[in-house]
Design a protein around this nucleic acid. Structure first.
Lengths: 231, 231
DNA sequence: CGCACTCTTGAGCTTTCTCAAACCTCGTGG
DNA sequence: CCACGAGGTTTGAGAAAGCTCAAGAGTGCG
């Protein structure tokens, strides 16, 4: 097991109010683990026996319908807590978490949750803040799905990923994890064909540039216009 | 101000573990209020200075897009906490709550939230359970919206309302609050025209029976078949 | 008794999906 | 080091679901 440095947690919201010694304590209880791209960290419906913190990489949070359709509910970026079903008194995970890229996460047994919230100043409130933000995010997505045409939904989905994980390159802003047309269609409730056509059109217009599993937004402003345009 | 009877809260999940005296204490701090059909209890984006419990009636939780489209995120039934933004460290409400029928609610100032969770055994955990359930519910709706055809979404929406508020009549099970075609289209991301056509067709098939703002499901089983059918 | 709101229904049109086929890219194993 | 195969992407053509536009009829409140 690799040695865990306390700097890993310092400054992250749920731990920002804590003393060094407390952070060391928390790290001592954590189990770090690496996940290959495509691996499930936990699965929908399974016993929620751990909660997690993503140290590095990106995750997709996914739900699958009885009919076999898949939808990506949200993405998790480094520094975020996830799998916090224990916080909501759930005994099973409500969705599946899959590594979108090679990822490293810390995990703690669910039984430590009440202890953490009782013992560590600010841990509970920051965690619930995360829940609140995520709830808001899902509501936004729902609203968008219910009211916007496909092109806007796809533009908004791409922008969300860019905002959450974008890194600057000389070409523009690049989504930091592998992403397929199929993935985007799972985020927006459309088909990979439609996404492919849209990206092709945008590429022709100089708004994006993409290769296999890889998207660079060269003109974010135009993409914002597409996602915001009313009608 | 009407006298509040402690039996109002006894047995409701967030209060079920409490002593009589505690319940009396909590009631003493509450402000009861009546809302006419169509009135907003609170509005999206406004300061989240209170949290609430619905005693009687039904609420719609609604979001409005910049483009003016409206979507109904969920309904609240009697006995449920709502407007619990304070629990999630939010300082504004993420959605608008509107009385779907004449309703009565208790409200408490948001600053009492930390006090309640600290002081009353089980209040925090039950409240977070509610949050978790609501999160799951919204995720279900999102998944449905992203993957199912309009007819199934409408069938599912009607069934959800029936399950949450249905009361038996000699004709079948009746949705207990006024509901228009437009309302249903706002729940399912379609148009009132399409909803009207679907209800007409179902009525012809003997599955539902409806008058102005009023729906009775005469054959719930067939409706379940429609909402579940795969394809 | 009239006006505002709700509901119904038809016709035509758009958007998006489905089906189909081909091409590209990259990793793997011979 | 090349060939192969799996997975990812592109594009066209046709079909279909559901939307828009339009008009009219029913319902109930003030």
């Amino acid at each position: 097991m690799p040695k865990l440095d306390e700097s890993l947690l310092t400054g992250l919201p749920p731990f920002s109010l804590l003393e060094r010694t407390q952070i060391r304590e928390i790290l001592g209880l954590a189990t770090p683990r690496r996940f290959d791209e495509g691996t499930a960290i936990f699965s929908e419906g399974f016993a929620a026996d751990h909660f997690f913190l993503l140290l590095d990489g990106y995750l997709r949070v996914v739900r699958t319908t009885p009919g076999g359709d898949q939808i990506i509910v949200l993405h998790i970026s480094p520094g975020q807590l996830f799998g916090i079903a224990p916080a909501l008194q759930r005994d099973t995970y409500p969705a599946t978490a899959i590594a979108a890229a090679e990822s490293i996460a810390l995990s703690w047994p669910a039984r430590l949750w009440p202890e953490f919230t009782a013992k560590y100043q600010g841990f509970a409130s920051e965690s619930f803040k995360t829940v609140g933000q995520r709830l808001g995010q899902i509501q936004d997505t729902l609203t968008e799905m219910a009211t916007q045409a496909v092109e806007k939904r796809v533009a908004a989905a791409v922008l969300r990923m860019v905002n959450q994980s974008g890194r600057k390159t000389d070409q523009g802003i690049e989504i930091a994890f592998p992403i397929t047309r199929q993935n985007i269609s799972d985020m927006t409730g459309t088909t990979l064909h439609t996404v492919s056509r849209l990206l092709s059109a945008w590429e022709k217009d100089g708004i994006v540039r993409s290769t296999r599993k890889h998207i660079v937004v060269t003109d974010p402003h135009r993409l914002v216009l597409i996602s915001d345009a009313q009608g």
